[in-house]
Write a protein that binds this DNA or RNA. Structure first.
Lengths: 161, 161
DNA sequence: AGTGAAACGACCGTAGA
DNA sequence: TCTACGGTCGTTTCACT
């Protein structure tokens, strides 16, 4: 995704006209909606819609994917961990990047240097992961765990309100 | 999404056979892949794949949607806010639910009662939102702000590793 | 960047095991 | 819950603007 693109790339709101935004909104509700149906509702031919969608995807503005629910798939425990780092934050971030248990990782300014979201099958797995993989890192000075009790809201349609 | 389903629902890993999991994995990479192409690679007819996908979506195991990049759309400022609440946490959560600026909202156990992710166009908008909409709530005792410096990892394919 | 048309392939409903 | 099949609709390619 574009989050990870070099910061020199400049795909901004200004590049997108009303039709592209309308296309995005339709696909945010149903990622498999046919191009011709979208074309009818936004006033473009099917080919034009397809071309725009390709460009939006290639430029990293959006992706069309299946988003799955961890609970339904047996991953019942989630937590956010605030991490305080000594030294190079990016180094720690890079090290954490590969873990399957981590599905969200942000460098922050504040009383934590990193926020790490963890998804696990069980409490046991979660605690083990935090102790053995996070807290055992030398550069990790401190961690604070926030167990998820209930996910109240989650949206993926940033930017188009 | 299924996160928001009544907690009595029990769609678990055990309900999904290898073929359904394989279908999910394909759609996690390309949400528009044709049912017949998926059928070829997992060993099912087009109709069977279609039926399974419908069931997976209807039961809340997944959804197929466009996921957009806030940066590309001009929403350059993100932050996580830890919120400490006095009294009924759900009441505060409900109140926050409708804000467009909030794209992620979790009730947590730990030194915060809520974690709130905020997406905004500018620092100014973000600060105003935190002060005027979050900190002004009576039941909100304390907040702590974590400004996002860089999003290192974000994945949506929970559960299928 | 866009349209339109023709060939092709995907999708949907239904029937049957 | 699967396969099979026919009608319909969507997608692809290409020539043109």
């Amino acid at each position: 995704m574009a989050h990870l693109m070099p910061s020199g790339s400049n795909h901004r709101l200004g590049n997108l006209d009303e039709k592209s935004k309308a296309i995005i909104v339709e696909l945010q509700h149903d990622g498999r909606k046919s191009y011709s149906a979208i074309g009818k509702s936004v006033g473009l031919s099917e080919a034009a819609v397809r071309q725009r969608v390709s460009r939006l995807i290639e430029s990293g503005v959006m992706e069309i994917v299946a988003v799955t629910d961890p609970l339904s798939l047996g991953f019942a425990r989630q937590a956010m961990v605030g991490v305080k780092v000594r030294g190079d934050i990016s180094k720690v971030a890079d090290r954490l990047h590969g873990y399957d248990e981590i599905d969200y990782l942000v460098v922050t300014a504040g009383s934590f240097d990193l926020l790490v979201e963890i998804v696990c099958e069980s409490d046991r797995h979660l605690i083990e992961f935090v102790n053995q993989e996070l807290r055992s890192i030398d550069a990790v000075v401190d961690t604070e765990l926030f167990m998820y009790l209930s996910l109240e809201k989650q949206k993926y349609n940033w930017g188009t309100r």
